[in-house]
Design a protein around this nucleic acid. Structure first.
Lengths: 234, 234
DNA sequence: ACCTGAACACCGTTCAAGT
DNA sequence: ACCTGAACACCGTTCAAGT
């Protein structure tokens, strides 16, 4: 379906205007609210999935929900609030189940890969998350709770848990960007002769023929962090 | 000097208009070019230093250089090019000198802290750097060359050097964001009761009374990476 | 309370005209 | 080649008016 209007199952609109185009709602408060946070979040995710973050404008978001842009401001204070809604939705998709069933090392490993994979598709959210007070993001907070409990159970000293999670998260966020980098990011071009060590290192990596170089770097760093942090347990 | 107009020593303008306000340049090609990349970069840095990245608009940049906004496009293709100029300027500020004089561990440590500190003040550049082909950024490439040479000399297997640097960089970029996070980022607020492990971990860290919690996390992660990567040397 | 519609104060970028 | 000045196609956000 190429250009059919986005339709949410929860919003059934009677359509009294048989003329072509969308049915017009006249001004004034509607009998039942047209918008809610869940619908706004779903529409934003649909838009992002179709056109990326460049396509996520307040105008486009409003259009996809068949309302005027200003209507959104009855439900969110700013576009940043919309990004926050999306972020918290995605946080719930991060797989933390291994903390309940597996040893600490493999639980951290699965969580980290899942976390990176989810946000690699949503790097424009990273500046938002990195500075996000957890109070504003219940699902994100729930993820932290599960992970913290896993660290505690594994014998991590309490005063180091937050720092360890923050360090892992920093690595994960940076690595999420790395996934999106173009394949030729390290081609030194005509500067190759003046950068023999780096150019050699790049060629040596390329010769390995890895399908996804970003995964090699992520694995290398993650395993080092797991070993290093694992030694803190008692 | 509170509000004096920015003046580059290389640009001396005769001022034939004695009336108040800036001297107007009439349309047409000036005898000598008013703009160049170095001047644009310097002006951008001045603007960022004064008003942050929100203050860095093409219009403001042009105004600070006493030209029309469209004049900038004779020298850069887009605003992204301006950010790239700034990024490459900053890359030259990262301290890589230790690679010539100190053991690998302390050289990596100094480089990583310096790198994080420089870009913590410039986090809006991180999405740009992370996807930046090194060909477009000679100073950045020079940094990679020095670091790669340091890794090679320290006995790092050639095919692992790039992955190790990328992993360190990912950690550094994520940690740069962390520096800018508000102090109360982890206050769970009224959700505290439902998140006992996390809330406990946050309080336990707070009880340590560290001035800069971001530095604790960075140190913890960096040392783990140094130990882990150090083991790859032969 | 929650919508519409018009308006505001910006953005980055393009392009003809001028020298 | 490298400026000016006007214009374009957007942005996010505000606010009076309507029900």
């Amino acid at each position: 379906m190429p250009a059919s209007p986005a339709k949410s199952p929860s919003i059934k609109e009677h359509d009294p205007a048989p003329k072509t185009g969308a049915s017009r709602r006249r001004a004034g408060r509607p009998a039942a609210a047209v918008l809610d946070l869940a619908g706004i979040t779903a529409a934003a995710l649909r838009l992002i999935g179709k056109n990326g973050y460049d396509g996520l404008t307040m105008a486009a978001l409003a259009r996809s929900l068949h309302v005027a842009p200003s209507a959104l401001y009855n439900h969110v204070e700013s576009k940043r609030d919309v990004l926050l809604l999306v972020e918290d939705h995605l946080a719930a998709l991060v797989d933390v189940t291994a903390f309940a069933a597996e040893p600490w090392e493999s639980a951290v490993r699965k969580w980290a890969w899942s976390y990176r994979d989810v946000f690699a598709e949503h790097t424009p959210l990273i500046p938002v998350i990195a500075v996000l007070p957890v109070t504003d993001a219940p699902q994100t907070l729930a993820m932290y709770e599960t992970v913290s409990a896993g660290f505690r159970t594994a014998g991590f000293p309490a005063e180091r848990i937050v720092s360890a999670i923050v360090a892992l998260e920093s690595f994960i966020f940076g690595s999420a960007y790395d996934v999106t980098a173009p394949a030729d990011i390290f081609e030194s071009g005509r500067m190759a002769e003046s950068t023999p060590s780096f150019t050699g290192a790049v060629r040596s990596l390329a010769a390995q023929g890895h399908e996804k170089p970003a995964d090699e770097a992520f694995s290398l760093g993650l395993e080092a962090l797991i070993v290093g942090f694992g030694a803190l347990r008692k």
